[in-house]
Computed example of a mutant assay.
Amino acid sequence: MRVFLGIELPEDVKQSLQSLPKQPSEARWQTNEQLHLTLNFIGEVDNDTLETLRHRLQSPPLEPVSLRLKGVNVFGSPKHPKALWAMVEPAALLQHWHHTLRDRLEAVGLEQDDRDFQPHVTLARFGRKAVSVEEFLKANEEYLSPSFTAEKLCLFASHLSDEGARYEVIERFPVGTL
């Protein structure tokens, strides 16, 4: 099973994101069901590892955090994007969550990527064709979502298909329960 840790977005935040213009049309825009905030990608795990992981996550040493999405950005370049995304603030608190969870994952033998973590919500993905998103970035630089509190850590399963990824919450873990 392909899994990752993340945060579910409240419905009002999803609706706010869905109200952004779907331009350029060449993008593969995320559906309401696909919108989430990834904290730690884990990858393929077997059932034994999944059970160990579930046990290890029962009491994440995390505190609830108030968040909002503010502005948009791009992975790749504005003239050749790989993905459009909404920025998350305060990023430093989610970076703390990410690093704490990374340590827990590594403690059960799940290697983690050492790249810098940039908290974000993916809005759209692009193929190899060069498409400009400069207008989208400029038009939505002041985007601001409703505030929300992340009170649960979610273990997601990712199911890949030709129609895109489908994400399923396997389990929710309350935070701040130590």
Rank of each mutant, 00 (worst) to 15 (best):
M1S: 11
R2P: 07
G6Y: 07
E8R: 12
P10R: 00
P10S: 05
S16I: 02
L17K: 01
K22R: 14
Q23W: 11
P24F: 06
R28F: 12
W29T: 09
N32P: 14
E33N: 08
Q34E: 15
L37H: 05
N40K: 14
I42W: 00
G43K: 05
D48P: 06
T49W: 04
L50S: 12
E51L: 13
R54M: 12
R56Q: 13
S59M: 09
P61D: 15
P61I: 11
V65D: 07
V65L: 11
G71Q: 01
H80E: 13
P81W: 04
A83N: 11
L84E: 03
W85V: 06
W85F: 15
W85D: 02
A86H: 00
M87Q: 15
M87Y: 13
E89T: 14
E89A: 06
L93C: 08
Q95M: 14
W97K: 00
H98Q: 09
D103C: 11
L105R: 06
G109Y: 10
G109C: 10
L110K: 00
Q112H: 03
D113M: 06
R115T: 08
H120F: 04
V121H: 02
V121T: 04
R125I: 08
R128A: 06
R128C: 01
R128H: 10
K129L: 15
A130R: 13
A130C: 02
V131G: 00
E134F: 01
E135F: 10
K138C: 00
K138E: 11
A139I: 09
A139C: 07
E141G: 01
E141S: 14
E141V: 14
E142K: 12
Y143T: 01
F148K: 01
T149H: 09
L153F: 03
F156Y: 14
L160R: 04
D162N: 14
E163P: 02
G164W: 10
E171D: 11
L178N: 14
L178I: 13
